[in-house]
Amino acid sequence: MTNICDDDQFAVDGAKIGDTLRIRLPNDFTVRNGTALATQDTAEKYTSLALQTQKGVDVAFSSAERALKLDDYSERVLLPMMNNLAGSVAADLMSGVEGGACNFVSLVDGSGNITNPTSQTVLQAQATLNDNSAPMSPGRKVVQDPWTEANLVNTLSGLFNPSQAISEQYRTGTMKNALGFDFFMDQTVVKHTTGSFTAGTVNGASQTGTTIAVNAITGTLAQGDIITFAGVFAVNRVTKQTTGKLRQFVLTAPAANGATSLSIYPALIPSNAGAAVQYQTVDVSPANSAAISLVNKPGEIYRKNFAYAPEAITLATADLVLPKGVHEAARRNYDGISLRMITDYVVATDQLATRLDIIYGYRYIRPEWLCVVADKI
Rank of each mutant, 00 (worst) to 15 (best):
134 A>L: 02
160 F>Y: 05
134 A>E: 05
128 T>H: 12
117 P>D: 11
160 F>K: 15
153 V>A: 06
163 S>K: 11
125 A>P: 02
149 E>Q: 14
132 N>M: 03
161 N>M: 04
125 A>N: 01
127 A>D: 07
119 S>E: 13
162 P>S: 05
129 L>A: 10
143 V>D: 00
135 P>I: 09
152 L>T: 10
132 N>P: 00
136 M>P: 00
122 V>K: 00
116 N>Y: 13
139 G>T: 01
144 Q>M: 08
141 K>F: 08
148 T>K: 04
143 V>Q: 03
135 P>G: 04
123 L>Y: 10
120 Q>M: 15
159 L>N: 05
164 Q>F: 10
126 Q>M: 05
131 D>I: 02
146 P>Q: 08
119 S>G: 13
135 P>R: 03
124 Q>Y: 12
128 T>N: 10
128 T>V: 01
158 G>T: 01
166 I>T: 12
159 L>V: 02
163 S>I: 09
153 V>W: 08
166 I>F: 05
142 V>R: 03
153 V>D: 06
143 V>G: 01
167 S>Q: 11
164 Q>I: 09
129 L>D: 01
155 T>R: 15
167 S>A: 12
140 R>A: 03
140 R>M: 04
146 P>F: 01
151 N>W: 05
130 N>T: 08
127 A>R: 06
118 T>E: 09
154 N>Y: 15
135 P>E: 07
141 K>T: 03
163 S>E: 11
148 T>M: 13
134 A>S: 10
148 T>I: 12
162 P>K: 11
150 A>N: 06
139 G>D: 04
130 N>C: 04
133 S>I: 05
147 W>I: 11
138 P>W: 10
165 A>F: 02
155 T>Q: 15
165 A>Q: 07
152 L>D: 11
129 L>H: 03
155 T>Y: 05
166 I>K: 14
165 A>L: 12
164 Q>G: 15
128 T>P: 10
151 N>C: 14
160 F>S: 14
140 R>E: 06
135 P>H: 02
150 A>Y: 14
132 N>E: 05
138 P>V: 13
155 T>D: 07
147 W>V: 13
127 A>M: 10
120 Q>Y: 11
139 G>V: 02
163 S>D: 07
117 P>V: 08
139 G>P: 02
140 R>V: 06
134 A>C: 05
167 S>I: 04
133 S>G: 08
144 Q>Y: 00
125 A>V: 00
130 N>K: 04
123 L>W: 12
160 F>I: 12
124 Q>P: 02
142 V>I: 04
144 Q>P: 14
147 W>C: 13
123 L>E: 08
131 D>C: 13
145 D>R: 00
155 T>F: 07
151 N>K: 11
145 D>V: 04
117 P>W: 01
158 G>A: 08
145 D>H: 07
156 L>P: 13
134 A>G: 06
153 V>P: 05
154 N>K: 12
117 P>M: 10
123 L>Q: 12
138 P>G: 13
118 T>M: 14
157 S>P: 00
119 S>N: 14
154 N>L: 09
